[in-house]
C-alpha cells in the first residue's frame, strides 16, 4: 500500500467519525475525535488542520472542527459505503453482528461507486445499518427515487450525473427547519403513498415536531400535517431551505 493510499484512508476515517459526531453537535471537539479514533489529541489536531486546508472542515483551535459542505458530501459517501457493507456482511454473508463493523472499515475504502450502486440494488435499498441501527445516508446520484435508479443500466448512469447539493433527511432537521424534497428512498409502495399525501419531489416540507425515543416526525406539507414514522422520515431527503 502506498503512502498516498494510507493517507486517503485515514482522511476517510476522520470524515466518517466527524460525520457521526456532528449529528449530536455540528461543532466536533478535538477531544471527542481523539477518543473515538483512539489517537493522541496532538495528531488529531494535525490532521484537522490538514483537512481544513483541503476544504473538508473549518477548524478553529481549541474549539474543534465543523464539516464543510464538501466535507459533508464526502463523509456521507464513506459512511454510506461503510454501512452498506455492514448490511451486506450481515444479511448476505451472515457474519456476526459484532464483527461486521471492523470488516466494513477495511472494505469501505476500496468500494467503487458502481459496486456501491449494485450493492444497494442487491440489498433492496437498505436504510439502516445492522449493528447500531444508524440510518444509511442517501447515494450521490442525481436520482429522485429508487424506482428510477433501478430502471437505469450502468451505461446510462453517467448521463444521470452526481448531485451537487447537500441532502439531509427530514429526521435530521430540527423542529421548525424546512427543506425542498429532492429524494425519496424506498420501494414503489412507500414512495407512492408519500406522493399521494403531498410529499412529491420539489414540495416544500417543514418539520413541526420530532417525538422522543426515535418516535415519529410531524411535518407540514401543502397545508396539511402528517405524522411519519422515524424509519420513513429517514428516507425522505431534502435540500434544506430557510
Amino acid at each position: 500500500m502506498s503512502a498516498k493510499d494510507v493517507l486517503s484512508e485515514s482522511i476517510e476515517e476522520y470524515l466518517e467519525v466527524l460525520y457521526k459526531l456532528s449529528k449530536e453537535d455540528p461543532l466536533v471537539k478535538t477531544s471527542k475525535i481523539s477518543e473515538s479514533l483512539n489517537i493522541a489529541p496532538g495528531s488529531v489536531t494535525q490532521m484537522l488542520k490538514k483537512l481544513d486546508s483541503m476544504g473538508y472542515v473549518h477548524y478553529s483551535p481549541y474549539k474543534g472542527a465543523v464539516l464543510t459542505e464538501n466535507g459533508l458530501i464526502k463523509a456521507q459517501k464513506v459512511t454510506r459505503k461503510h454501512r452498506l457493507l455492514e448490511r451486506f456482511l450481515y444479511d448476505v454473508l451472515k457474519i456476526k453482528k459484532d464483527k461486521v463493523h471492523a470488516q466494513a472499515c477495511e472494505m469501505e475504502h476500496v468500494l467503487s461507486d458502481d459496486a456501491e450502486r449494485a450493492l444497494c440494488h442487491l440489498l433492496e435499498q437498505p436504510d439502516e445499518c445492522p449493528d447500531d441501527l444508524e440510518p444509511i445516508p442517501a447515494c450521490n446520484f442525481k436520482f429522485t427515487t429508487c424506482e428510477e435508479c433501478k430502471e437505469r443500466s450502468n451505461e446510462e448512469i453517467d448521463e444521470v450525473g452526481d448531485r451537487n447539493e447537500k441532502l439531509v433527511s427530514i429526521a435530521d432537521l430540527n423542529e421548525h427547519e424546512m427543506g425542498k424534497v429532492s429524494f425519496i428512498r424506498g420501494d414503489y409502495k412507500v414512495i407512492r403513498r408519500l406522493m399521494d399525501m403531498g410529499i412529491t419531489i420539489g414540495a416544500n416540507i417543514s418539520v413541526l415536531k420530532i417525538a422522543p425515543f426515535k418516535g415519529p416526525v410531524e411535518v407540514s406539507v401543502r397545508g396539511s400535517t402528517l405524522a411519519l414514522g422515524r424509519d420513513i422520515a429517514n428516507n425522505v431527503f431534502v435540500e434544506q431551505t430557510v
Binding site: 427515487t145 428510477e148 430502471e151 419531489i201
Partner: peptide
C-alpha cells in the same frame, strides 16, 4: 416520459396533479 423528467411516470403525474391543485387552490 421518464427520460424527460428523470422520474418514474407515477411521480411525474403526482407532481403535475399537485402543481395544478396548488394553482387552483
Amino acid at each position: 416520459i421518464e427520460k424527460i423528467h428523470h422520474e418514474p411516470t407515477f411521480a411525474v403525474m403526482a407532481s403535475e396533479r399537485y402543481a395544478l391543485a396548488n394553482k387552483i387552490a
